[in-house]
C-alpha cells in the first residue's frame, strides 16, 4: 500500500516536470486518499447503511424477519408525538442557547480583547467552563440545581427567594438545561470573537470615532458588520453542537419529566436501545442528518455572501 502510493507520487511529480498538468489530479487524489478512505469507511458508509436500515422494519420479539416498508418508518417517526416534542424541544433549546451564547461570547470578547494581565485572567475565567467535559459539568449542575439544598437555591434563599424545582418542573427543566449549556459554551465561542475582533479594520473604527460615533454606534455600524463572517461561522458550529450532544440531558433528566427535556439525539437513542426499534431510530437519524445538512449548506451560503461583501 505505502509502496504503491509513493511510486504514484513519484510518477506524478515526474509527469509534472515533463509538463503535463493533467496528471496533477493523481497527486491530488493520492494525497487525499488516506482521509477519503477513512471518511468513506467511518462516515459515508455508515450513513448509507443507516439509510438502508431506515427502509426496513424488524418487529422486536415477534420472530419475524426484516421487512421492506419503504418510507413507513419515516411516517411512524413523524406521527410519533414523542418525536414531535423532541424536535420542538430541540428547536427551543437551540434558539434558547444560541442567542444568549452569541451575546455573551461577543460581550466577553469585547471585554478581554486588549491584552493586559487582568484581561488574561478574565479570559481564563470565561474559558474555564469549556474545559470541563459536558458529563462532568452536568454532574456538577445536578448538585447546583438540587431543589431546596442545592447551591442555587441556597443563595436564592439568602435573598429570600424560594427557587423552583429546577429539573423536576416540566415548564422549567428545559430552561435549566439551556442555562447550563450557555454557561458551558459562551467562553468557547468568545475565542472566535477575540480572533474576529483582531481582523476588524482599525482605520474604520478610528474613522467612525472621528466622525463622532459613540461606542454603541461603533459597535452597531462598524464592528458588528465586520464580524458577520465570525457570527455566521459560530452560529453553524453552535447549531451542529446543539443537535449532536446530549450528555447533560442523560446525566440530569434522561429526557424527563414527561419528555420535557428530550432532544432529538436522545430520542434516537431511546428508539434504538430502549425500544429495540432500529428502523425507527434510523429514520429519525436520517431526518436529523438532513436538518444538519440544511443548516450547514444554508449558512455556508450566507457565509460566502458575507465574505464576498467584505472583500
Amino acid at each position: 500500500m505505502s509502496v504503491a502510493s509513493t511510486s504514484s507520487v513519484d510518477l506524478a511529480l515526474g509527469e509534472r516536470r515533463a509538463g503535463r498538468p493533467r496528471r496533477l489530479h493523481l497527486l491530488g487524489f493520492a494525497l487525499l486518499a488516506p482521509s477519503l478512505l477513512f471518511l468513506a469507511l467511518f462516515t459515508y458508509l455508515p450513513v448509507v447503511r443507516v439509510a438502508i436500515e431506515s427502509l426496513y422494519d424488524t418487529p422486536h420479539g415477534t420472530g419475524a424477519a426484516a421487512a421492506f416498508v419503504g418510507l413507513g418508518n419515516y411516517a411512524k417517526v413523524l406521527s410519533d408525538p414523542a418525536f414531535r416534542q423532541a424536535a420542538l424541544n430541540n428547536l427551543v433549546y437551540a434558539v434558547g442557547v444560541l442567542a444568549p451564547t452569541l451575546v455573551l461570547a461577543l460581550g466577553f470578547a469585547l471585554a478581554v480583547q486588549r491584552s493586559s494581565r487582568f484581561s488574561t485572567v478574565l479570559r481564563t475565567v470565561f474559558f474555564f467552563p469549556s474545559l470541563v467535559p459536558l458529563v462532568a459539568a452536568a454532574s456538577l449542575f445536578f448538585f447546583i440545581f438540587l431543589p431546596g439544598v442545592g447551591l442555587l437555591d441556597y443563595y436564592l434563599g439568602k435573598l429570600g427567594i424560594r427557587g423552583p424545582n429546577w429539573l423536576g418542573d416540566s415548564d422549567i427543566a428545559l430552561w435549566s438545561v439551556i442555562g447550563l449549556t450557555v454557561w458551558k459554551n459562551a467562553g468557547y465561542y468568545m475565542l472566535f470573537y477575540i480572533a474576529g475582533l483582531q481582523n476588524v479594520p482599525r482605520d474604520a473604527v478610528e474613522a467612525a470615532m472621528i466622525d463622532g460615533a459613540n461606542a454603541w454606534q461603533r459597535l452597531r455600524f462598524v464592528i458588528l458588520p465586520a464580524l458577520a463572517p465570525t457570527t455566521a461561522f459560530v452560529t453553524v458550529i453552535a447549531l451542529i453542537q446543539l443537535l449532536t450532544s446530549v450528555d447533560h440531558v442523560i446525566v440530569l433528566t434522561r429526557g424527563g419529566p414527561s419528555n420535557a427535556t428530550n432532544l432529538l439525539l436522545y430520542y434516537i437513542f431511546q428508539s434504538a436501545h430502549e425500544n429495540f426499534d432500529y428502523g425507527k431510530a434510523a429514520a429519525a437519524t436520517l431526518i436529523s442528518v438532513a436538518i444538519l445538512l440544511a443548516i450547514s449548506f444554508g449558512s455556508l451560503r450566507v457565509m460566502e455572501r458575507g465574505a464576498r461583501g467584505d472583500g
Binding site: F142, P147, V149, N165, G168, S170, T253, G256
Partner: peptide
C-alpha cells in the same frame, strides 16, 4: 411532598 420530580440523588 414537593411538586415536580425529584431524582434519587436529590
Amino acid at each position: 411532598m414537593p411538586q415536580g420530580v425529584t431524582e434519587a440523588g436529590g
